[in-house]
Simulated assay, not measured.
Amino acid sequence: MFTVDSISIRYEQKSIINDFSFAVKQGEIMSIIGPNGSGKSTILKAISRLIPYHKGKVMLEDMNLKSMSAKQVARKMCMLSQKNQAPSDMTVVDLVSYGRYPHKKWFEKLNHDDMEVVHWALEKTHLTAYKDRTVSSLSGGESQRAWIAMALAQRPKIMLLDEPTTYLDISHQHEVLELIRELNAEMGMTIVMVLHDLNQASRYSDNIVVVQDGEKAMCGTPNEVMTEDMIRQVYRMDAEIQYVSSEKKPRIHLLSTVR
Rank of each mutant, 00 (worst) to 15 (best):
G220Q: 06
A151M: 07
T166G: 08
P156S: 08
Q173L: 02
H119Y: 13
L177N: 04
Q173S: 08
E224M: 11
L179K: 05
I180T: 10
V176D: 01
L122H: 09
D113L: 10
S136Y: 08
E224C: 07
A201L: 02
T190M: 15
K131C: 11
A129N: 13
D213I: 06
L138H: 02
E224V: 11
L179F: 07
P164S: 14
D113K: 07
D132W: 11
G140I: 00
E182C: 11
S139W: 05
S139G: 09
E186K: 10
W147K: 05
Y204M: 01
S136L: 03
Q173E: 06
D132H: 15
L127T: 05
A201P: 00
S137V: 13
D113E: 12
G220W: 04
T128D: 13
G220A: 09
A185S: 12
I148K: 09
P164W: 01
H172T: 04
T165A: 01
R133D: 14
P156I: 13
I208N: 02
I180S: 03
E182N: 12
A185V: 07
V211E: 05
T125F: 12
Y167F: 05
G220F: 04
K124S: 09
S139D: 15
I180Q: 04
K216Q: 07
T128K: 13
A149N: 00
I208W: 04
M115A: 04
G214F: 02
A121I: 02
S136V: 13
T190E: 14
V135C: 14
I148N: 06
T221S: 12
V225N: 05
D132G: 11
Q154F: 03
G220D: 04
T166M: 12
G141W: 03
V209F: 09
A121R: 04
L160G: 00
E163C: 02
E142K: 03
A146H: 03
E224H: 07
W120H: 06
Y167A: 00
V192G: 05
I148L: 09
S202P: 08
V209K: 13
A185Q: 14
E163K: 01
D213K: 15
A149K: 00
V210C: 05
V209C: 05
L168P: 00
D162E: 12
Y130I: 08
W120R: 11
T125A: 12
E123H: 10
E163L: 03
A151C: 09
I170G: 04
L138Y: 06
N223P: 10
D162G: 12
T134R: 14
D132C: 13
K157I: 09
H126N: 13
Q212Y: 08
E215H: 15
